[in-house]
């Protein structure tokens, strides 16, 4: 059985996490165990099991299209570290 590959540095980069070498080694081993656990499925014959789209066997949960007001601008911005003219303000990000 093949061992799933895990690139801890790539995962850290995608998650915007700066890991020390010690952390990288620790998390690599921990996440590796999760993958190992998942690969336990490969030891079972699943050919008769129907794939599902969700862990819960429930469908069609929705609401009608009715609108209702939520926060005021003050409430929406209550936790904003910085704000300017009713908007969240953050360091300038290059648009991409």
């Amino acid at each position: 059985m093949s061992q799933p590959t895990l690139d801890i540095h790539k995962i850290a980069r995608l998650s915007r996490l700066a890991l020390t070498e010690e952390e990288a080694t620790r998390f690599e081993s921990q996440l590796g165990k999760v993958l190992e656990y998942m690969s336990a499925l490969e030891h079972h014959d699943l050919s008769a099991v129907e794939p599902t789209q969700h862990a819960m066997p429930i469908y069609d949960v929705w609401r009608e299209d009715e609108s209702r007001s939520g926060f005021t601008a003050e409430e929406a911005l209550a936790n904003a570290p910085r704000q300017s003219s009713g908007q969240f303000l953050m360091p300038r990000v290059v648009e991409e």
């Binding site: 300017s84 969240f88 303000l89 953050m90 300038r92």
Partner: peptide, 11 residues
């Protein structure tokens, strides 16, 4: 988002 001199504003 609106980008200006003071930073990026978000609505």
């Amino acid at each position: 988002s609106t980008h200006s001199g003071i930073g990026t504003q978000l609505d």
